[in-house]
Amino acid sequence: MDIIEKKGKKKKVLLMGKSGSGKSSMRSIVFSNYVAKDTRRLGATIDVEHSHVKFLGNLTLNLWDCGGQDAFMENYLQHQRDHVFANVAVLIYVFDIESREFDRDLVTYSAVARALSENSAGARVFCLIHKMDLVQAEYRQKLFEERSSLLKERSEGFDIVVFATSIWDETLYRAWASIIYTLIPNLSIIETYLRRFAEIIEAEEVVLFERTTFLVVCHVSQQGLGNPNDDRFERISNIIKTFKQSLSRFTSSPKSAPQFTEIELRAPRFSLFIDRLTSNTYILVVVKPGESDLNTAKMNVKIAREDFERLDVTGDGKKPTRTRESSSRMELEAEDDAGRDAEY
């Protein structure tokens, strides 16, 4: 990994929680293209497993997957306290919903939160109440609320965010997308640009996904159009990641390979496509049904590629040079030939 990365762009993320709570499972699914079933093969993590994940060009996550057996926890909290808990950007603490000793888990959690407050007071803390699939659906919400409020009392002053998660459904993607959202620099600029873009092509919705994790980076939707599926972004992440696994089996290519370049769907009520946008992102565009809306949107994605590439890679906060605020759709279409990407 590149050690000369500029300071500040590398974010240290601590992944902690009792042994067997599912930390390595989540990490493998989100970052290493495992499917849920594959995690049954994982052994207990010994000490800390470090991994560096490049996310959207200039952001690198420095992930510390901390083995959760008692001896290791003790070690982090005592001998390695200054080392482990220093310069932390985010702590993700995982609780196994099936744990029979939640009180004891709370004690350990509190100790970790205290160590963090002493060494990285500015860190953000996320708690995941995990393996929710093991609880029958009708009890999930109640259990989640009970546990969350207990956690909030024991967080040593941190203003925590709690998620209910499971590797067996999209809740995993919701939690991780929300966590990583807080770490991406220049997001507001990307978002502004995306909104502009969506307006020009009259899209119902435009969503940006990171390439390897397929986590949602940001999304914009047409005003007043209330899609009732609030969990749709994480569901799409889940659907596409699962399908990429199938594709890798089908094409006998490595799981980390991009697998597809474009997905297109014309349904009676909408048209949709997912296309490579930059070297780090995919874009999903939903437009009104019908041939012309879809084709216009596709062309404009090709044109907008360069602008997005610049935003994404340099992340220097500069406005895109080629603004199209006054362009009409017809003009954009006419530019198509000049803007066509050589990638195809």
Binding site: T251, S253, Q259, F260, E262, I263, L265, P268
Partner: peptide
């Protein structure tokens, strides 16, 4: 009355 239609282009 249009039937749904979809195309996926694979890397290979």
């Amino acid at each position: 009355d249009q039937e749904a239609e979809s195309v996926i282009r694979l890397q290979n």
